[in-house]
Amino acid sequence: MELNTTAKGDVRVVAVNGNLDALTAPELADALSTQLRQGNAKLVADLTGLEYTSSAGLRVLLNAAKEARSKGGDLRFAGVQTNVKKVLDLSGFMSIIKSFPDADSAVASYA
């Protein structure tokens, strides 16, 4: 898995590439926690390059969304691909987390 975090105004976009499982999920948890600790609570998880996630990845995303909201921000998804969407649908995540076709529209949704 590869992570790439960029700043778009006061929004932080964390691009997740590759596969999220119990081995790689802690790295994403660290990246999201770091942003939240630094006071960046408006987050976008750009999942355009994410090919697979198990429940381990979902837990990390859910915890980050919970913490971001408690700090007055949010975690929003961008570019969810087919297999990842299947897992998100199965878990009920798509009903509680806003999802956008790409990172730009997810960032714009915070305006």
Partner: peptide
Amino acid sequence: EAPDVDALLND
């Protein structure tokens, strides 16, 4: 049973 994501969000 299906996990309740709203419950998870609310601890």
